[in-house]
Design a protein around this nucleic acid. Structure first.
Lengths: 150, 150
DNA sequence: TTGATTACTTAGCAGTGCTAACGAATTATA
DNA sequence: TATAATTCGTTAGCACTGCTAAGTAATCAA
């Protein structure tokens, strides 16, 4: 059967969507161990690897609205995982920074989560892992490009 | 740097986890169009493609606890997307069935969501889409195997 | 028959997403 | 300079989704 460029993309989108949901749902239980929800861990990750930034930047990076990020940051602060300072140039802005405790917790949570996801992948051969790695890169690229288009 | 079998799997798990989160977060806004949250749509999908089933089965299929599924089903019922009947054999059980309206809505929501995810993938070449499709299959397989192991 | 198990519901907590509305600070303009 | 428009973040309030604990009803086992 001849497959058109377009319908093939729809098929890929469909299958990928489903697979991503199932994969994450399977890995999700694990986040609980850190005592922090996935949104907080993800935001903390951005802070740790991207350095201190304003709330708005963080919200954009996480593709979330400002009020949502405001609450996430409040939670991180309450847990001592991030701290908030005033911006020297612009008093409207805040500067969100991961604390040492935040960095530590992130590494631990990350290790646990990733290790358990790796278990899920334990039945795959190395060549198949290569495919997944390339796929992960493609997904990130596609999202970046699409975000730019919006 | 020589990569060991093990650390490579950890790296793949890490990148894949991150990519899946970002991809779904990017596609998520779309579900809103249907006026139903992702958990309801996903459960409805199981009902439509898997046929009527008991609440416990549905919860297991969605990897969710019974109380959570109880509420999801209540929501579907309230919206007229699913109906609940008594089980003939066992009065403790309920039989959850997708209504015609539920099937219709699911198809529409699915088409919308998939079409918009396909847009996200529009910058990729056909060979890259092939990679994603293979990756989706691998993810599903890995999750199935891991679920069996648990 | 009585006790244990199973299926589902209810209640209550926490996290995460949104929009609307607000105050404070900054920038642009008359 | 004074005023208006914009930007940044917060608060309030809604909805959805996940959990555990506890309760009810039905079934199964001893």
């Amino acid at each position: 059967m001849a497959r058109s460029e377009k319908s093939f993309r729809l098929e890929v989108a469909d299958r990928l969507h489903s697979a991503a949901i199932h994969l994450l749902r399977h890995a999700r239980k694990r986040d609980v161990v850190a005592g922090q929800g996935p949104a907080r861990l993800s935001a903390l990750s951005v802070l740790v690897f991207g350095g201190p930034m304003a709330l708005g930047q963080l919200a954009a990076a996480e593709q979330v609205k400002a009020p949502t990020m405001s609450r996430i940051v409040a939670g991180l602060k309450r847990s001592g995982l991030a701290k908030i300072e005033a911006d020297a140039k612009d008093a409207r802005r805040i500067r969100v920074t991961a604390t040492a405790k935040g960095k530590r917790l992130l590494q631990q949570a990350r290790v646990r989560r990733i290790r358990l996801l790796a278990e899920t992948l334990s039945g795959l051969r190395e060549a198949e892992l290569d495919t997944l790695l390339r796929a992960a890169e493609l997904m990130e690229r596609a999202v970046r490009q699409a975000s730019g288009r919006e």
